[in-house]
Amino acid sequence: MLKFPLNRRQALIGLGAAGTMLSFGLPARAAAKVNLGVIRLASHAPSFIAFERGYYKDEGLDVDLKFFEAAQPMAVAIASGDADYGVTAMSGGLISLAGKGAVKVIGGALTEEKGIVGAIILASNKAYEAGLTSPKELAGRSFGITTTGSSFHFMVYKIAQANGIPLDQITLRPLQKVGAVVGALSSGQIDAWAIQPSIGKMMIAEGHARQIGLFSDYAPDYQVTTVFTSTRNAADEREKTQAFIRAYSKAVDDYNAAFVDKTADAAEVDDVAKIVHKYVEADLPFETARNNLLEGSQRINKGLALSLNSVTEQLEWFKSEGMVKEDITPEMLFDTSYVKTI
C-alpha cells in the first residue's frame, strides 16, 4: 500500500476537518458507569470528596453512590455486580467471596497510626461506674459488634489477646448496624465497644460513654479498611479500575491535608468539611461536624497503599476462628498489582 507524506498545509487542513467533525457532534467516548459502595462514616470522606469535586468525572467515570449500613452487605453487592467498588473493613463474608473467586482487595484505606488518635475503646457509663475502667477488665463483660466476622470482632480479639483474656470470656453482641451499637452503649445495654474517633469522641463529649483505651496501643499498624472490587473488574476492567484509584487517591490527599496533617488553609478545611457534612453527621450543626472531623480523623493511606502484613494477619485470624475456609490463600484475596504495598 502506497503512503503519501503530508505537507504542512495538508496536515493543517486535516486537523481542521477533524475539529469540524467533532464540533458537529460526533459522539465522545461515554463515561464509564460506576456504582460505589459507601457507608455514612467519616472514614468514607474521600468517596464524597471525589464525587463532589468532580474527580471521578475527570477520570471518565460516571459514579453513583450506593449506601450500606455494614461491611458484609457491601461485599455481597460487589460480588453480585450491584456495586463496582467498595471501601470497607475486611470481613468474613468478603474473604469467603474472594475464596469463591468473586472479589479482590485492591488497596488499603483507613489505617491506625501511632501518634494519631485512632479507634477509641469505650465503656458505657453504667459499666465504667461498676469498675470497667481499663480494657484489662473486659472479662465477663459484653462488647458490641456489628456482625460476627466484622472488623469490630477482630478488634476485640486483638484487645483480648493483648490483655491475656480468652475471647470466650467476653460476650459479643452482634447488633447489625453502627447506629444500633451507639444506642446500646449509650443506654448501658452493652458494656464496651471500639469505634473510630469521630464517633467515639462525640459520644464522650455528649456524656454517653467513657474512654478506657486506644486501639492503636494493641495494633498500631492495623489496616482498618480496604478497597475492593469484583474479580472481573480487577482482571478485565483495568483502565476503569486505575481511573477509580487515581480519582479516589486525589480525594485522599485533600482529606489528609485538611483533617490529619492539617496543612490545608482554613478556607480549604471549611470547603472539605462542608462536602463531608452533606453525607456524615448531617443532623449536627456544621461547626460541630467540622470539629469532629478535625479532632477525630484517622489517616487514609496515600495512593491507597495496602498494608499487606496487617491484612494477611486478618486473613489468618479469620481462618483460625473457622469463619472462612482454611484453603483461602492471600493470592485469592489480594490483587497487589494496582497500588504500593507497605
Rank of each mutant, 00 (worst) to 15 (best):
M1Y: 03
L2I: 12
P5Q: 11
N7I: 14
R8T: 15
L12K: 14
I13M: 10
G19V: 12
S23I: 14
S23P: 05
F24G: 05
F24C: 09
L26A: 13
P27C: 12
A28Y: 12
R29T: 11
A32S: 14
K33S: 02
K33I: 03
V38H: 04
I39T: 00
S43I: 04
H44S: 04
R53C: 06
G54W: 02
Y55P: 09
K57H: 05
D58C: 03
E59H: 04
G60C: 09
L61Y: 01
V63M: 02
V63S: 01
L65G: 00
K66I: 13
K66P: 01
A70R: 02
A75G: 03
A75Y: 00
A75P: 08
A79L: 07
S80W: 12
D82S: 07
Y85H: 07
G86R: 03
V87R: 08
M90K: 13
S96T: 12
G99K: 05
G101H: 14
G107N: 05
L110T: 13
L110R: 05
T111K: 11
T111V: 15
I120V: 14
L122E: 01
N125C: 08
K136S: 05
A139I: 11
S142E: 00
F143L: 09
H153D: 10
M155I: 05
Y157M: 02
Q161M: 08
Q161R: 07
A162D: 06
A162I: 11
I165K: 11
D168K: 10
Q169H: 13
V178T: 11
V181T: 02
V182K: 09
S186T: 09
G188P: 04
I190L: 08
A194F: 10
I199G: 00
M202Y: 08
G207H: 13
G207N: 10
H208L: 14
Q211Y: 04
F215W: 03
F228G: 04
E237D: 15
K240S: 08
T241C: 07
F244A: 00
I245Q: 03
R246V: 01
R246E: 00
A251P: 08
A251M: 05
D253W: 03
D254F: 09
N256E: 07
V260H: 06
D261Q: 15
A267R: 13
E268A: 15
V269W: 06
D271K: 13
H277W: 09
H277I: 08
K278S: 01
Y279D: 01
E281N: 12
E281T: 04
D283K: 09
L284R: 04
L284Y: 02
T288A: 03
R290Y: 06
R290A: 08
N291C: 06
L293E: 09
R299D: 10
N301Q: 09
G303W: 06
L306V: 07
S307C: 11
S310C: 14
S310R: 14
V311H: 02
V311M: 01
L315S: 07
F318V: 07
S320Y: 11
M323Q: 13
F334R: 14
T341H: 12
